[in-house]
Amino acid sequence: MTEGVDTIARPVLEVSDLNVRFPASRDWLGRPTSHVHAVNGVTLQVRGGGSLGIVGESGCGKSTLAQAIIGLAPYEKGRVAIDGEDLQAAQGRQKRELRQKMQIVFQDPQSSLDRRLPVWRLISEPLHIRGGHSNAELHAKAGQLAVAVGLRPEHLDRLPHEFSGGQRQRIAIARAISTDPDLMVLDEPTSALDVSVQAQIVNLLLKLQRERGLTYLLISHDVALVRHFCDDVAVMYLGQIVESGPADEVLGNPRHPYTQTLLASAPSFASPLPTIAEVRMGELPNNRKLPAGCFYKERCGKAAAGCEAPQVLQRLSDGARHARCHLAQG
C-alpha cells in the first residue's frame, strides 16, 4: 500500500518523504552549483508479502528511487526503513545485515553478473560476503538455490556467457534470494529479455513470492506487466508519485491526467494507435529547476485554475486510491 492506510500486514518497506538530488554542475572548488532533482518527496509503504509497482517513463525517477532504497544512491532528506529499522542510521555490521534483508534484481543480467565468475560463485556471493561458509557449503547452497529458480545443478560450474538471457536472469534471481531477503527490488527485471522468456521469469517471480512470502517492489515502464504482477501501483512523474492505489483501480480507471495519458499511449491489442492529441506530447520538464505548482500542468490537457498551486497527494473519496491532482477529486 502507499501512503500508509489500513494495512493488514506490517509494512516491510517504509519510505517517507524521500528526496534524492545529484550535483549537476560544480564550481572550481568542487562545490555543487546546481542539482538534478531526481526524487522529490516520495512516501510509500510495501506490506509484507505484497507487491508494489512503480510505473513511469524514463527520467521520472523510478530507478533512482530503487537505487536510493537499496543503498546505491545517497539521499539527503527522508527516511528508508526496512522492517521498521532506519537504514541510514544503521552502522557497520547492523547496516550490512539490514542491507542483506533486501536484494535487487537488475534489468540486464548480462551486466549484473561478473562474467569471470562461475555460476555457483555468483549465486552465493551475498553469502560469501557475509562470511562463515566454506566453499563446499557455498557450492551446495548455490545448488539448492539454482534448483529453486529452475536451473540445473550440474550447470553450477559454468560461466555466465554459456547461458541464455533468461537463464542469466534466473541466476540473478537465485543470487537475490540467497540471503532470504524480506524485500526484493525488481528493476525492470524482464525488459532486456525476449517476450517468450519474459513470461517464464514473471511466472518464476510470482511462484517465489507464493512460496517464500517475498515482498516485491517492481520498477517498470510496462503497464501491462505491472497490472499483472502487482497488488498496488504508484505512478511517478518528475520524481513525484502522482497517483497510487490498488493496481486494478489505478490502471483500470486512471484519475490523474498523466496516468490517463500513459495508459492511452501504452501499446495494446485492444485499442488503436492513439492520436497525437491524445498523447499530449511533450518533453519531461527539466528536473534541474522544478516547476512551481503542479509538475504536469504544462502538458496537461485539463489544466485549469488551481493548477498553479503545488498539488498534494490526497485520497480520493471513492475507493482506496490517492491522486496528486485537485481535479481528480470531483
Binding site: V195, S196, A199, Q200, V202, R227, H228, F229
Partner: peptide, 24 residues
C-alpha cells in the same frame, strides 16, 4: 499463438502466464 498467450495483457492478474518453454 504462444507469443500472444504469454503476454500479461491477456491474462488475469497473478495467473501463471503460458510461457514458451526452452529457448530459441
Amino acid at each position: 499463438q504462444a507469443l500472444l498467450r504469454c503476454l500479461p495483457e491477456r491474462v488475469a492478474p497473478k495467473q501463471e502466464l503460458e510461457a514458451i518453454t526452452g529457448a530459441v
